[in-house]
Write a protein that binds this DNA or RNA. Structure first.
Lengths: 126, 126
DNA sequence: CTTTCTGCAAACGATTTGCAGCAGC
DNA sequence: GCTGCTGCAAATCGTTTGCAGAAAG
């Protein structure tokens, strides 16, 4: 774990939403773009960071929930591309897990994690 | 609606999963890549087609559910990138709608649609 | 000294766009 | 004519990679 990687984890921990690489570079000036890309790949393979791809032009990155203990989903604005975190509801998670067991049993798929996105208009775009 | 666009809708209707552009070109030879890209943009803005972006190298396209009447979610293989459709469960949808109303009320977000992806290993990769 | 990390610049590849020809009205 | 669609080739741009030097052990 080098200083550069610690800096990335730092920036992501302070964020309340997944960040793009330009956003990361803006927050922590002085980092080389290529190193950020490379280190995010390393952190992703280490399971520390998750890459989130929306229809937006940039990929986004956030800390893995294993580390933060904060299970959440995403609000994605179809107008401006903004992405916000939203805490997961216990009831919804329960229903989801029931549905997942059924799906895994009938399809032969092995679910490791899930992703729920609500797509619509954010407060400022609506 | 030109012949080229009808051909795209045709191909997507016959598919049981969202297709990438190389897949579309393979199924319907003779189409120009640029026209396919352009027409998919047109169809997407017309609300006929949805673009799905995973961590895979290509975007994927499917018919909007308004047209097919077939509400479903996706199984995404983290190993090979394959994407399969899976029908939505009624119980899960009910819980989701309850959670969505609550979220819209408390955050000011306006949810228009949702996306549920189960990420894991497909039958052949597990 | 050997291995890994860094940053610059160049390469890559999916997607987009400029342009000229064509089809339809 | 005018407008919109097509296909080729070139451009765009987020991301990846080659390489040489710096840092770590």
């Amino acid at each position: 774990m080098t200083g550069n990687r610690a800096a990335l984890v730092d920036v992501l921990r302070d964020a309340t939403r997944p960040l793009t690489i330009p956003e990361i570079l803006h927050i922590r000036g002085g980092l080389a773009q290529s190193s950020v890309y490379r280190n995010l790949v390393v952190l992703e393979q280490a399971g520390v960071v998750h890459r989130i791809v929306t229809n937006d032009e940039h990929a986004r990155f956030e800390l893995a929930e294993d580390l933060t203990g904060n299970h959440h989903h995403h609000l994605v604005c179809s107008e401006c591309g903004a992405v916000e975190d939203v805490p997961a509801s216990a009831g919804l998670e329960a229903s989801l897990h029931a549905a997942v067991s059924e799906i895994d049993r009938t399809t032969g798929f092995t679910t490791e994690r899930h992703r729920i996105d609500l797509v619509g208009r954010c407060r400022t775009c609506s």
